[in-house]
Nucleic acid binder design. Structure first.
Lengths: 230, 230
DNA sequence: ATTTTATGTCAACACATGTACACTAAATAA
DNA sequence: TTATTTAGTGTACATGTGTTGACATAAAAT
């Protein structure tokens, strides 16, 4: 019932409008949503936090008009949640390399740290976003990040269960270990990404400290429980 | 506009009697500067980050007119730095209890965790501020926090040097250990403070995980280096 | 070919923000 | 006492903000 009427209106307005002030619209084929996400990440990397990033600034940076934002997200909060999801989708790949790594404990640890650094540098913006919003302003985003971390931790716990020394550990203790490792690795990543200028020497030093820390933690594993009451 | 004689007398008496003495003046309506700092902490605890907290909102909350803010700080950035300083002045007291603690390793660890939780709860706002701004928006604040953490870490390293097993550790390794412990404790504190509703059971559980993690780290200490090359 | 949907534009709004300027009153120094 | 410094108030303004509503058009569906 509205078909013919719409047609009529369309034709009328089309013919009525003056064509000399035509605005050429660039075809965006649906990648604007991704542009918004990426643009936000980039802006957040500079010196802003999520709730100080304005909708207008973001759309300005992306190259669309403010109101067009609402075609893709109900508001900035939802953009934040989408960013969290995207970030963790990226981060879950960190442990993929670890799975296939074999050899001495030290080799594995070195591999983990290297993989961590590589992934962190490759997905710098996502890592930085999670780091800065983890305890930052937006409560919803905070909780989403907390959930994501719990997920990572659970996956690592599953991986850990395959190691000889950890075979007989309780699920609780495995989670505890995984949490400790995830936290440490998080700190390492944040530390490394904080350095804007990529001083290779300083980075190598940070990595060595990281390896030492992980090694120290692992050193305690064989003596867990048995020496815990000393 | 006044007579040059008065100015001359002023200068003469000042230079003659107390050129360097700082005069303390009591503000008219209480310590507004402190009110600004405390008010900012309180507002930041809710759901904001430093750079999304507006000068007007803060002054509104404190009960002064916006422009009066500039009587106390050149801008919000400087307020942020003052907050960092105040926060770390408070946090430095955490390890004070630890110093006097003696007994088994487990006792000490339990004491540390309890002290940490107690201090964190007591100075909730300061801890939350540091947590959320550590990797947050403002670069200056971020760097100030980084420095503060390094300071804490150094102090802990000094304390650690007194323990038997650590006597012969290198300074570097002690710093590494201190960093690992400070990071872990930071995570613990943030985890606990994140819980708004003070569920005593959940808190106890978090504390036990924390104790386990610290114990695991400590377990590795006697085997450091000796088992590191495996 | 025609209609629909997705995605963009423009104009307007009511309001918040940082800060400059001029002024005032209280506390302190002289 | 008087003068000066400190810390507050009120006005004003240019600029930035989120969001509504009406309209436009490219691409996809019919």
């Amino acid at each position: 019932m509205r078909g013919s009427m719409n047609t009529l209106v369309n034709i009328m307005t089309k013919t009525a409008r003056n064509p000399d002030r035509r605005v050429r619209r660039v075809s965006r084929r649906g990648d604007t949503r991704q542009d918004l996400l990426s643009g936000a990440l980039k802006l957040l990397d500079e010196d802003k936090s999520l709730d100080s990033l304005s909708l207008r600034e973001l759309t300005r940076h992306v190259g669309i008009v403010p109101t067009a934002f609402y075609r893709h997200f109900p508001g900035m909060d939802e953009l934040g949640l989408a960013l969290v999801e995207e970030s963790f989708r990226v981060m879950r790949k960190i442990f993929a390399d670890v799975r296939n790594d074999t050899g001495s404990t030290d080799r594995i640890i070195a591999g983990v740290v290297k993989s961590l650094v590589t992934h962190a540098r490759k997905n710098r913006l996502h890592f930085r976003f999670v780091a800065s919003e983890r305890y930052g302003g937006n409560p919803g985003v905070r909780e989403a990040i907390r959930n994501g971390m719990r997920l990572l931790q659970g996956e690592l716990a599953l991986e850990l269960a395959r190691f000889p020394y950890l075979k007989e550990w309780t699920a609780n203790d495995l989670q505890m270990l995984a949490a400790l490792l995830v936290n440490s690795m998080t700190m390492i990543a944040e530390e490394i990404l904080e350095q804007r200028g990529l001083d290779k020497y300083a980075e190598r030093e940070l990595m060595e400290v990281a390896e030492k820390q992980l090694r120290l933690i692992v050193l305690g594993i064989p003596h867990w429980r048995s020496g815990a009451t000393g």
